[in-house]
């Protein structure tokens, strides 16, 4: 969980950086999209990424099942959660499922219309008539629908919770923690997760509130 989790965090970091470009320049963003496109290295990376997600998720299912078994058949009648225990820590699986669902939506909205379309459909999106290379247009189109915007924000909140626990938890599992480092790693994790999610969220909000139009306003 920890290794695949850290890898996924790194991917998210890359993805967030890429997204932020869309705030400043449509051309820049599309250039990145084109660069990735359906080139062999992008496809390979995507497959690797898919494998990572699969490992992370399947392993989570196995562990959760094992843990439920270990917990035993009888449940406490009264349970009092200690203050130290974070809500996220106890609900990682549920959060993970929300993240996966969000990811499916996201794949449908973007990947299906971009990389997949490029590979299978000669570069034309399935859902609208934008070019598969026009990632920027795709963003603007998707978040012009407020339902999507809200869903994406919910998804990001779940991801934030998942990351706040996941970050330090990964370090803990890999043994990189201790009485002093625990607090440091945890703080870094909170800051990191917050910045990362804000980077994603700000793109959603920007396009949801003013669409692609005001970009020119900002970046000339």
């Amino acid at each position: 969980m920890s290794v695949s989790g850290v890898a996924l965090i790194l991917f998210l970091t890359f993805h967030a950086c890429m997204n932020v470009v869309a705030l400043f320049s449509a051309e820049g963003y599309n250039m990145i999209c084109e660069m990735l496109g359906a080139n062999w290295y992008a496809v390979a990376a995507t497959l690797a990424l898919a494998a990572l997600v699969a490992v992370h998720f399947i392993y989570a299912i196995i562990l959760t099942l094992q843990n439920r078994k270990a917990r035993g058949a009888s449940r406490y009648a009264v349970s009092d959660k200690p203050a130290k225990v974070e809500w996220a820590a106890q609900n990682m699986f549920v959060l993970g499922v929300i993240v996966i669902l969000g990811m499916l939506l996201h794949l449908y909205n973007f990947w299906y219309n971009m990389m997949f379309a490029e590979m299978a459909n000669g570069g034309y999106a399935y859902v609208n008539d934008l070019s598969a290379h026009d990632g920027y247009g795709m963003i603007a189109y998707t978040f012009s629908n407020p339902v999507y915007s809200v869903l994406y924000l919910v998804w990001l909140v779940a991801l934030w919770f998942h990351l706040t626990h996941g970050f330090w938890s990964a370090f803990q599992t890999l043994g990189w923690s201790g009485k002093i480092w625990f607090n440091r790693v945890k703080t870094i994790g909170y800051v990191y997760a917050t910045v990362l999610i804000l980077m994603f969220a700000v793109v959603v909000l920007k396009f949801a509130l003013c669409g692609g139009a005001c970009c020119t306003g900002i970046c000339g």
Partner: peptide, 26 residues
Amino acid sequence: GNCTNTRACEAVCPKNETIANIARLN
């Protein structure tokens, strides 16, 4: 079961063992 780092254990440990031990074991 497996440790998912919820910290419930250290919160209730009557002898104040900490999860720093778990990191060390890992």
